[in-house]
Design a protein around this nucleic acid. Structure first.
Lengths: 177, 177
DNA sequence: CGGGACATGTAACACGTTACATGATTAG
DNA sequence: CTAATCATGTAACGTGTTACATGTCCCG
């Protein structure tokens, strides 16, 4: 039972979110890939190359969060349709309500949560922001405690930077409402 | 000629810096590893497990930046001594003067630069800070331009977050002097 | 008829974490 | 005698980037 590492980018939940936004709750890999291109909202937050996209879709299928079916087409390469399952939607909803734990995750993961929360569950956005604010407030308080106890000048600078970045994120959060 | 990816952590330059701090400009892998443990200044910024440490030392040797020699010991596993070469010292000095390009690199790479600059070249610290400030100012100005042009509400939030994080880093930098 | 969009991947490489292998010496 | 420390790694896995393979269809 090896502890699975947290992925750097919230790619898989973004894919669940994109499927949820489709009226049919289904799409081809190629359709999904376009959302990560240059001018698209998600493309401003992070990129997802086709290789990784199909890899993630395979993992989502293995987890039972999407169901894939092959569309055989005469004289054409087969297309694969990925459909959001009930479990996948439940996982997406769970993820949409959960604040991120670290300031550095605001830049990618929280932004993606916010994007889908606004489109899929606008009534829960205020709650997400409130819970994220609470998490960051605790981090900031913790950093102040460490700052008060630290003596090494370099250590003080490290802690001060983290506090300043956390405070900036808090200010940005408060401007969201 | 594949474009080499920029490593996430400035592990290799930190290793060059640690060697430069040694009076003999040399150390064993094990000695170097201790600097990335919990209470140590570098350990507050990032961790480096032994597996990766030896991997990086191998790469540094291949680049000619360190020279390794084996100390045979009777009835003991052989120890390997890594010594900073002239080329390695030159690369370290080059790196110490170069500001980082993105706000997100302040949190790890710039902190490590600052740490070694203060210990190895204190007379150049003010210049490093000034150049880093200039880079971040340009990024901030660029973000303001994009903010003025953007219309999509989500895109505006993304850009505002980046600007706020960059401004916080600039404020922190100005407190360093 | 040539190039781009459609459509799904694979291969090679690089970075990073966790766990483990090996084997000696030293401290309690 | 047992655990920690010294000392150098390997193996397995997971994440991510870049480049490429494969083949069709449509537009100009």
């Amino acid at each position: 039972m090896t502890a699975t590492r947290r992925p750097e980018r919230p790619a898989e939940h973004a894919l669940l979110g994109l499927l949820a936004l489709e009226p049919s709750h289904a799409a081809h890999g190629y359709d999904l890939a376009r959302h990560f291109a240059d001018g698209q909202p998600l493309g401003e937050v992070f990129r997802l190359e086709s290789g990784m996209l199909y890899h993630h879709l395979k993992k989502l299928a293995a987890a039972g969060w999407v169901v894939s079916s092959t569309e055989a087409q005469s004289s054409r390469p087969a297309r694969r349709v990925f459909r959001l399952s009930t479990n996948g939607r439940a996982e997406l909803d769970r993820w949409l309500q959960e604040p991120v734990s670290h300031t550095r995750e605001i830049r990618l993961e929280f932004l993606v949560k916010l994007y889908f929360a606004q489109l899929l569950a606008p009534d829960r956005v205020a709650n997400l922001i409130a819970e994220q604010t609470e998490v960051l407030r605790r981090l900031a308080a913790n950093l102040e405690t460490q700052l008060a106890a630290a003596t090494d000048p370099f250590h003080l600078r490290v802690l001060a930077l983290r506090r300043d970045q956390t405070d900036a994120a808090l200010q940005w959060l408060s401007d969201l409402s």
